[in-house]
């Protein structure tokens, strides 16, 4: 049975990476937010499975935080924001989908190579692969922040990056619970701050495309 437990953990972490790829090619914002909610749900499941497998009960709390905040409150808030701002039709990738997907694959390959190499002979295989998947999610989140122009998508990229962090924290034994809590709250606060800024940007410029701000600064020369 330990093999099955391992496989399930592996499956959940792997699906996180897969959902990260789905995030990258989502063109519509509502779909993007739904995929993000899915990723948060998977994260909660992965963390809960870790808690069950290792008997570490404080990880259940982490899973609950992920479920409540990131799978429900944050997507709901962002959905509402998008509705209020009326930007649900915008498609705003900077780089095309194919090159981005290729770059993402390269990043996953890089992080798996690197992590398996670095942690050779240390720790159990589960946490090693968890770390590799977590790094992939982090890098894909960053890639998303870089390849999107819309501020909401950039927030989603940031949140997905943070999902990777939580996954790494859950996989690595010994990360204090307090740190996880504070990370979760800081992400929430970051979302609120960014949301407020979004509204302000919108009031000023009638758009949340950050390219408009570039134009306003007089730097993006036609």
């Amino acid at each position: 049975m330990p093999d099955a437990a391992f496989d399930i953990a592996h499956l959940l972490a792997g699906s996180l990476v897969l959902v990260s790829f789905m995030l990258i090619y989502q063109g519509r914002i509502h779909a993007l937010l739904n995929v993000f909610a899915l990723q948060a749900l998977l994260l909660a499941l992965a963390v809960a499975w870790q808690a069950h497998m290792r008997g570490a009960h404080h990880l259940y709390a982490s899973a609950a935080i992920a479920l409540v905040f990131k799978a429900m409150i944050v997507p709901w808030a962002l959905h509402r924001m998008v509705r209020v701002l009326g930007i649900h039709r915008e498609v705003e990738t900077v780089v095309g989908v194919v090159p981005t997907m290729l770059a993402g694959m390269a990043l996953v390959a890089l992080s798996i190579l690197l992590m398996l190499q670095l942690t050779r002979g240390a720790g159990n295989p589960l946490s090693r692969e968890d770390l590799a998947f977590a790094l992939s999610v982090i890098l894909l989140g960053m890639l998303m922040m870089v390849t999107r122009r819309n501020a909401v998508s950039q927030i989603v990229g940031f949140m997905s990056l943070e999902n990777g962090l939580i996954l790494a924290a859950a996989g690595a034994q010994g990360m204090p619970f307090v740190v996880e809590i504070s990370v979760a709250f800081s992400v929430l606060i970051a979302m609120i701050v960014i949301g407020v800024f979004l509204f302000r940007i919108r009031e000023r410029f009638d758009t949340v495309d950050t390219g408009a701000i570039e134009q306003f600064r007089g730097e993006k020369r036609a």
């Binding site: 960053m142 890639l143 922040m145 870089v146 730097e219």
Partner: peptide, 12 residues
């Protein structure tokens, strides 16, 4: 004088 996205790209 880069944009925020380009700075992020540099860091990345």
């Amino acid at each position: 004088f880069l944009t925020i996205r380009r700075y992020l790209a540099l860091v990345f």
